[in-house]
Amino acid sequence: MKLKISLRHIAFFLLFAIFVLLPFVNDSRTLLILLTQIFIFGILAMSYDILLGYTGIVSFGHAMFFGIGAYTTAVMLKQMDNTLFIFVLSILIGMLFAGFVSFLVGLLTLRLKSHFFAMLTLAFSGLFLVLAEKWRSVTYGNDGFTFRAPDVFRDRMTFYFFVFTSLVVIFLALYRFVNSPTGRILIAVRENEQRTKSLGFNTLHYKVIASVVAGIVASFAGSLYAVSLRFVNTSVMTMDITLDALLMTIIGGVGTLVGPLLGAAVIEYAQHALSGMARDYPIFERWIIFFGILYILAVIFFPKGIIGSLRLLIWKWRGKVKNKKTQVALPQEKERFE
């Protein structure tokens, strides 16, 4: 088979090299922590993109899976031992549990029309939030608890590389997943569910598959998140996490996988920068306001997200897209123009 090297491959390789080399060039703790945070939320946002961007499911309960991962890892590291083995085991158990929960919840709710589904996911994630609040003996209620991360991760750099490697592996796996025959059916479900059914595909199965995959990946992100903070509390289960994932996906570009990563970078960096400016300008303590403005601007000027809009621009420049209508076109489909 001929190996075609495109501009995209080069760009990916460059990015990869930058992130590998960066810690050796600039070993600022703040930067490492920020990048680690971006990668973790990038993984979460990609998992959300599988639901929103590829299958067209709007879920308000995605934080539930993030929380399951975070709590599983935190509780196991606290109650058992802070070894690497327990950490890996906790990730696997968290993913298994999240997969099981998303399978059950999906089976129960994905039959419903989208807005009813969205409300129900909210209810289910509320259920887990209450569980995390009330099961004090294990979760220490609202305040949460601190725990010791495995010793290898005491070095921020090691953890950074662990998270970065995970991100790359998950990205490649999800990329393959959305380009598999099953992934194509997910896209068909998003485009026209009824038609997909009449082609003989049981769309419920595919929506459940999407939600299980998204749930498992989100749980993994949650595990990493807990370890990055060495602390967990109920905030990992709240709507804020879901909204963050939603914003990252929309700002970056739905249905692109790369978009959510970029969205995560933009939002995490903006949060970091804006709250940093609060020291000099008290108004920035309300950085959430600026966030709102940023979001509105993004939706007005980049309705397809940053990646989506850029892509369109490039295609226009190459003269491949004439009709404004095609803005909604799938990136994968468009590649065929090339």
Binding site: R176, F177, S180, P181, T182, G183, R184, I185, I187, A188, E191, N192, Q194, R195, T196, S198, L199, G200, F201, H205, I209, V328, A329, L330, E333, R336
Partner: peptide, 27 residues
Amino acid sequence: NVFPNLTVLENVRLAVQSKEKIRYQLF
């Protein structure tokens, strides 16, 4: 009743895929 935002080929390809019973091939 087709998939408006997919290419013409992809529309038909999905139908052929259904006929060939390639439904749960993830990798």
